[in-house]
Design a protein around this nucleic acid. Sequence first.
DNA 1: ATAAATTATTGATATAGATCAATAAATATT
DNA 2: AATATTTATTGATCTATATCAATAATTTAT
Lengths: 237, 237
Amino acid sequence: MDNAFSEESHTHNSCTVSQYHINVFDHITDDEAKEIERNQVKVSFKKGEIIAKQGSFASHIIYVTSGLIKIYIESCNNEILILKIVPPGNLIGINSLFEKNNVFPFSAMAYQDASAKLIDINVFRKIVKQNAEFAFQIINVFSTNALQIYGRFYCFEKKQSYGRLADIILCLADNIYKSNEFELFLTRKELAELAGMSPESVVRMLKKFKDEGLIKEKGKTIIISEPEKLRQISILG
Amino acid sequence: MDNAFSEESHTHNSCTVSQYHINVFDHITDDEAKEIERNQVKVSFKKGEIIAKQGSFASHIIYVTSGLIKIYIESCNNEILILKIVPPGNLIGINSLFEKNNVFPFSAMAYQDASAKLIDINVFRKIVKQNAEFAFQIINVFSTNALQIYGRFYCFEKKQSYGRLADIILCLADNIYKSNEFELFLTRKELAELAGMSPESVVRMLKKFKDEGLIKEKGKTIIISEPEKLRQISILG
DNA sequence: ATAAATTATTGATATAGATCAATAAATATT
DNA sequence: AATATTTATTGATCTATATCAATAATTTAT
């Protein structure tokens, strides 16, 4: 049994691919589904396009149907902090359901070509307020989300760069590509943003991983040769 | 009007005193209130006592009625990360409402003597699932919480230590003591934990603030002489 | 195909803040 | 009141990682 002192319960990682596999819309009535249907538009985004801009009015909830989206906080001085990566099947913008939080608290940008349904936030809110089962599903989304981002926070504070970079590589392999061999679609700069470090450091650390035989690189393809050793680095920080 | 480029919307701080002033229980029926009443116990905690332990089963939701509580993530190597400070009127443990997240994802400890109502989580969950208005209030709590912790995350990543320490001092003054002159109940070590730095650095930076006339210290009393200058440091990082 | 622009790599240097160590002050204990 | 323990302060040193600068490789545009 899992207890407070087990390794498991004390392991956090900086990987934050939203992993909400339950379809929240399973819990709405046919009428509610139709109402959502009537009040949504489907939109496509090209790589690099902004899907939601921090500070702008949140008039809709975004349901990602394809592609990959990064959620990040930005500030005046152009520094950004990536909070999570959102694959299809997830919602963006539920933080603005509460009428007083009516602006997007962070930005969203397509990492790759993506598509999404934009659902009128008032309709969505109305259904949350009338359907407690649905509201409970939304609570689950919030809570899963929070745990992941707190874990990321912990790692960023307590692990050093090697650990964070190892985390991200494993995260991409496990959650995005579902393979230990994959073609990296991210630049060093993007990888650096994800791991919370400078692009130069990413280069140097990847080199070290390569020198130690943990990973191989062929062009844009990354092969994780020693996933377990990499995981050790990720755990020990 | 506030827009995406206003200073306001781009300012984050590492202060995370939960500020949920709406009473979530305003939205339950009399019967539900009675049910909660029947299924809760009131408990007192002394300074330093653990109120919830990361990894243990979450059998109840904690409603803080007095005192001040710190919420933190811990791991094997005794390093902790404070996520937030919780004053009276707030809930702890709602992350475990979802049946699959049935353990506390973080620990809670009393900073000062505190008291709380422990509400049976099953009863609480049942009411969330049957009362959509109440569920919506809980969503608001989640969302307010998330925004605060994301802001803290951003600061920890992007601001340097002076900014974070300034943040925390202002946060204590504004949100806990509601005065620019207050008796600090925290040790340097606790202040360091809150600001995400070493205790020695706290000492050195406080000294610098004193040398520059931003704050004064008389025994345990802190006087913020130049709140605006301190705020500048907090904003510029 | 060639030029321009972006991205990756490498090395040198700088630095914020941690850690270590030694004392001083304050608090708790006997 | 005297002693032990904890907390605060100060200085010296160390280190992880950023920043800067220069070149190489790759991608994009012409």
